[in-house]
Amino acid sequence: MPAPRFKYLKPEDIRKLAAYEFAPRNVVEGYLAGRHRSFQRGPSSEFRDYRQYVAGDDPASLDWKVFARTDRYFVRTFDQETDTACYIFLDSSSSMGFGTETTKLEYASCFTAALSYLVTKSGNQVALGIFDNGIRSFLPLGGTGTHLRNIMATLEDNHPENETSVAEAMRNALPMTRRKGSIVVISDFFDDPGEIFAALSRFLHRGFKVYLFHILAPEETLLAPNTLRRFVDMETGAKLIVHPDTIRKQYNNAINAHIARIRAAAVRRGVEYSMSRTDSHYFTLFDKLVKAK
């Protein structure tokens, strides 16, 4: 039976993803046994230490070899391995619709689809939140193939609209994230970095590992047009007549400074940050999040 065809998850991408494994770099809290180390001790192959047998312990956990040597009952304990939760929040505001060949939203959707696939393939659970200036839709955690298909369908039905407010969206998303895990925010972050990180700090306090993926179009970094243009803000509709040639350098400086501010704030708060342009392949973003087999 041929694999279903998704707009944002191509078979060739699936083939490439086979070489990757979802491995967030912190300990997670989960209910299902999985590949991720947990603070809870439980049956697993990772030995932790020995302790005195007490009534009620499973006799199967007794280490008979130690009893034979010491004539005492010791029980071996192991670190419990569990599945991890990955919450992906995809910015779908109007500004994400910008881009000539590939819009930022398409690029981000491809990355989201690939990440979701990778997470579920690794036996972990993934949730998807679509936001603009609030949470527009949310698919709770799931790790099944059906869940993955739902994610793909959601992404395909998604369109850029409304203004961006990452901070507001993250504040709204907080109650939806019951399990600790990873928070992946994919956006162009045309918002005040201070407010964004103020909103994300709550996740950090709760022990979430936060990943920020900053997606920009090459036209945004280079200010592509060369002649006088009326720039229309895709989110607000505000108009501004500018000759790009005259301000290109200032703009470049400004956007670099904006990126630098986000990056610096991320470093200070232990947030993983990665920026990518839509003219590069989204696989480069996995460097922060997954590891090669």
């Binding site: 006088l228 009326r230 720039f231 229309v232 607000t236």
Partner: peptide, 12 residues
């Protein structure tokens, strides 16, 4: 001048 839809005029 010709209109150019841009993601955000915030920086501009």
């Amino acid at each position: 001048p010709p209109t150019y839809a841009f993601s955000s005029n915030m920086l501009l």
